[in-house]
């Protein structure tokens, strides 16, 4: 069983702050983490390895600093790590990213066939959920998004059965290997790495692949050049024309404030009063 897990190093978005005056991102001191959604994919790949043996290869595209994310993945128990890094990849949108990652996986499977490619359901910084489907399409893999459970892997028959989250329910699907799975969040919990894995991760020589090593001959397919979407202005949302009507009373007592608010609300929005009266118990 050979799984390739695509991960991304992202800024911990809970800690991003915007400068109140200039509206620019204050990046200083924001820690970089493995995209939390990717951990569910990695843990699932490790569980398959526990059961069937084999290899887990982690791949990330990013700047040289992204090696920290790969070492972390190795410390959880991944076997191999490849950093795909080249200035030519800078400014990639999701189409260009899936191009670089798909080409990388083609190179990987020249040495060892790949059974399952795993990704998280989306990243916390881009939130697009587009790269997984993009890689599947480029490698002509069956695509299983939002997988909540792997029910069965029949390695001999090259088949897999999974549960997939759909809009109003769960689909039970059967498909052929190789396939690409995007794991749903909350479906497992990342293990603690063993001492041995932590030492191995700290000392490991990471493979760093540039554009050509990743098998991309044409530089216009990746990075900014390979991105059909163009990001224009970045801006803070405009305030509403009118600021909130502030409720104030002489006492500023919670009870008075509440009563004053209700009186205003129901006078100005009788529809809401009717709606509430209709439903309240």
């Amino acid at each position: 069983m050979h799984s390739v897990v695509c991960i991304k190093q992202v800024p911990d978005s809970a800690q991003i702050r915007v400068h109140p005056v200039t509206n620019t991102i204050m990046r200083q001191g924001v820690p970089a983490i493995i995209n939390p959604y990717d951990l569910f994919a990695l843990e699932q790949a490790l569980r398959l390895k526990d059961r069937f043996g084999g290899t887990v290869t982690v791949v990330t595209m990013g700047p040289p600093q992204a090696e920290v994310a790969l070492r972390k993945a190795l410390s959880f128990g991944a076997d191999e790590a490849i950093l795909v890094s080249d200035r030519a990849f800078a400014g990639a949108d999701t189409l260009a990213t899936s191009c670089a990652l798909a080409s990388t996986i083609r190179q990987i499977r020249k040495n060892m066939p790949v059974d399952i490619v795993f990704t998280g359901k989306q990243t916390i910084d881009g939130d697009t959920a587009q790269v997984g489907p993009g890689i599947a399409r480029r490698l002509d893999l069956q695509l299983l998004t939002y997988v909540s459970r792997i029910l069965e892997v029949d390695h001999g028959a090259r088949q897999i059965r999974v549960e997939r989250r759909a809009e109003g329910g769960v689909q039970v699907l059967r498909t052929a290997l190789p396939c690409l799975i995007t794991m749903l969040e909350g479906t497992n919990e990342m293990r603690f790495g063993t001492m041995a894995d932590m030492f191995r991760a700290a000392r490991a020589e990471l493979k760093v692949w540039d554009r050509l090593a990743a098998g991309i001959e044409d530089p216009s397919l990746v990075g900014l050049k390979g991105s059909p979407t163009v990001v224009g202005k970045v801006f803070a949302p405009k305030p509403r024309a009118l600021r909130a009507e502030m409720i104030e009373t002489a006492t500023q007592e919670p009870k008075d404030l509440a009563v004053t608010l209700l009186a205003k609300l129901f006078t100005q929005h009788p529809r809401i009063e009717r709606e509430l009266a209709r439903r309240a118990v």
């Binding site: 809970a14 991003i16 915007v18 916390i124 979407t229 163009v230 224009g232 202005k233």
Partner: peptide, 14 residues
């Protein structure tokens, strides 16, 4: 929204 939802950006496919 972009940057973890702290700003907005406008994107075009030209």
């Amino acid at each position: 929204p972009t940057f973890g939802g702290s700003l907005l950006c406008t994107i075009m496919t030209q």
